[in-house]
């Protein structure tokens, strides 16, 4: 591993403990992509399975892109510049294969359209990160990555799993048991 290499790839680092649950990331994302405030169509969605335990859930860009591999119609591709997964809305048949193979169950079918919704990193300047940084919460931070690290895929977890671990950490094991 070359700790100093900089291929210009970016990643949205997520620090769940610092998420205020304000969901300004959802507002910023859905305004950018949908022109509306639309929580369930936002590419980043904040789950709150336990009050006070908020989990911003979005694509991690796995090194081996299982979703892209699994797509039966070639609707998913990766951006060379950013490493983001891009959806070709016209090709996508909303079959759900990408959701099935995603270790974090991150993609979802658009609430009213027939295509898979996946974070496209806004072409390199993500609106969610700007909204989060502006408020000083910094739960989402734009950082450089070295390459296609294996470790990054480990962040692709379901909201349930992240919630359980975070509840234990913030509220203690006893509270987490009830989750």
């Amino acid at each position: 591993m070359n700790w100093l290499s900089d291929k210009g790839l970016i990643w949205i680092y997520r620090n769940y403990e610092d998420c205020s649950g304000c969901r300004r990331c959802e507002i910023a994302c859905s305004l950018k992509h949908e022109g509306k405030i639309w929580p369930e169509a936002s590419r980043v969605r904040v789950f709150m399975l336990v009050p006070g335990i908020e989990v911003p859930h979005l694509c991690v860009q796995c090194y081996d892109y299982p979703c892209v591999e699994a797509c039966p119609v070639g609707a998913l591709s990766t951006s060379k510049e950013t490493g983001a997964v891009l959806t070709d809305k016209d090709k996508c048949i909303a079959c759900g294969k990408c959701i099935e193979v995603c270790p974090g169950k991150v993609p979802f079918i658009h609430p009213t359209e027939n295509y898979a919704v996946i974070c496209d990193l806004c072409g390199g300047d993500p609106e969610c990160v700007k909204a989060c940084g502006k408020g000083g919460w910094n739960a989402l931070q734009l950082i450089r990555r070295w390459g296609n690290e294996l470790d990054i895929k480990l962040y692709a977890k379901t909201p349930e799993k992240i919630t359980k671990d975070l509840t234990a950490k913030l509220y203690g094991e006893e509270v987490a048991e009830g989750v």
């Binding site: 403990e17 205020s20 408020g135 913030l170």
Partner: peptide, 20 residues
């Protein structure tokens, strides 16, 4: 406080905090 900012939908102020 385990959370220093806690807020409801769209709030920039997030004046709540979570105490445990």
């Amino acid at each position: 406080w385990v959370k220093r900012f806690w807020g409801d939908y769209g709030c920039p102020i997030t004046c709540l905090k979570v105490a445990v």
